[in-house]
Write a protein that binds this DNA or RNA. Structure first.
Lengths: 262, 262
DNA sequence: CGGTATTTTGAGTATCGTCAAGGCCAGTGG
DNA sequence: CCACTGGCCTTGACGATACTCAAAATACCG
């Protein structure tokens, strides 16, 4: 059941990587080689994509949906340490067993590359190698962003930080963002249970935090998983967000950013 | 004052990298090239090693002391997102401005490599390139470990997690660990203020947490910055630590690990 | 020995985790 | 079509924990 071998191997080679900025600059032959060894796989929400501890035999790139990275605690419970969305890579090259498990948080599709051939290509293509390095650098930065959010003393602040991450990092993903009547409407792509695990709290506290933010007029809850951002400035203040400059929204969502400080 | 240009350029080339496992396997000529471009620099506690935002012009390896990585929040306060100890690398290759600032938490010495020559060498030496990649993979894992610790609901649990990190990751460092009468004595290499920033709490709560752990008989406080671990099992339980297997202490500290579960 | 920084302790308040119950929605089967 | 079920989100009450402000004690340094 966790064994999603039903990934359809398309008869013809479908370009699957050139779409994303981190791969777009690769030489044509590298892209071609990647496309050829790429296999699509589909997963349903809840399925295990890659278990921790086992030697991973593939590298993956998310094409659609959201995956969660999680660590299993000694008492058996899982703790989420990050989300993977469209364009994100996962899997460990050159190295031993993976430290994090990857599961589908929503229905998802990924490109997978068998580790051996991928590593061979890596050695032949310095450009790919560098792309991988840069990808990991930004992954590291993101993990540290999570640390700052998690260090927030109040659940309210952590929720605010999470919403800001959605507005920025997930801006180009799927249809997670759209313009609403009074601001930006973001879709929360994971369940409250997962969000609680990610933010180190409980679903009850999450609910209270969301509604407290709504009562303050910072956000409006259209649906449990559909939040409208009414005041991005106040939200940043709540989150004590550091990287205000990083709030670079696509132009079509620019209206809400009108009067930003600094 | 923050400009520690007083790094002594040693007249003769001192091998500075072969000491550490991640570099030991590099080919002799690569090591030699590294040693030649390596410049030692000394910093006093509190000095800025590398500012965030500015283009970093060097890659660093910590030789002695502890550095803190921190992000500056929008209100000007800094938040610590990690520590760097002996053998750790920092600095950004191939890429734009650094996302984290690096400051000396204690008096410290580093090896620095100018970015340009380092990157050139990187392109010539696939082994160095791979070492860098692996280094970043483990850095990423560590950041996620911090996330798990930070997600701990109680300060007590976060302190326990921090102490476990000291016992494991920092085991081979400096003289941070030594055998005490009833267990392992670890030196906490950073101030309470810094620790509070790292764990997302306040110094007052830290103090209470330390003394609560001491009252429970899990640890004993020899000095404010000198903690004796009396029961590593209970400490792991307090921390809800996931990576129990990762508690691989050097043999000379093995006594305390006698009866571990699983 | 005195002065400063750091750590600790105390008291009051706010927040959060926990337990318990209720509401909403989708899917199921009568 | 409707009752039933289970999952998910929400609300309420209560105790535990942590943050805040304030002050004392200790350690550190000249």
């Amino acid at each position: 059941m966790t064994d999603a071998k039903d990934g359809k191997k398309t008869g013809e080679v479908v370009p699957c990587l050139a779409d994303w900025p981190q791969f777009a600059r690769l030489p044509a032959d590298t892209l071609e080689a990647l496309d050829e060894m790429c296999r699509h796989r589909e997963y349903r929400a809840g399925q295990i994509v890659s278990d921790a501890g086992e030697d991973q035999n593939f590298i993956g790139v998310v094409r659609r949906g959201v995956l969660r990275m999680q660590k299993t605690l000694y008492d058996g419970r899982a703790h989420i340490v990050g989300l993977l969305v469209e364009g994100d890579m996962f899997g460990r090259v050159f190295d031993g067993p993976a430290q994090v498990a990857v599961e589908a948080a929503t229905d998802a599709m990924i490109c997978s590359f068998r580790r051996g051939p991928f590593q061979e290509l890596l050695m032949r293509s310095p450009e790919l190698d560098r792309a991988l390095l840069l990808n990991m650098l930004s992954e590291l930065d993101r993990a540290r962003d999570w640390m700052v959010i998690l260090a927030n003393p109040t659940v309210r602040g952590r929720v605010a930080g999470f919403l800001l991450v959605l507005c920025t990092r997930f801006a180009e993903v799927d249809h997670l963002l759209q313009n609403g009547p009074d601001g930006l409407v973001v879709k929360i792509p994971i369940s409250r249970v997962d969000l609680a695990s990610l933010l180190g709290t409980r679903t009850e506290s999450l609910s209270r935090a969301f509604h407290a933010l709504a009562d303050s007029g910072v956000i409006a809850l259209r649906q449990p998983d559909l939040v409208e951002i009414l005041d991005l400035n106040v939200l940043s203040a709540e989150a004590r967000e550091d990287d205000v400059a990083g709030l670079s929204l696509p132009a079509e969502f620019g209206s809400i950013l009108g009067r930003r400080r600094r």
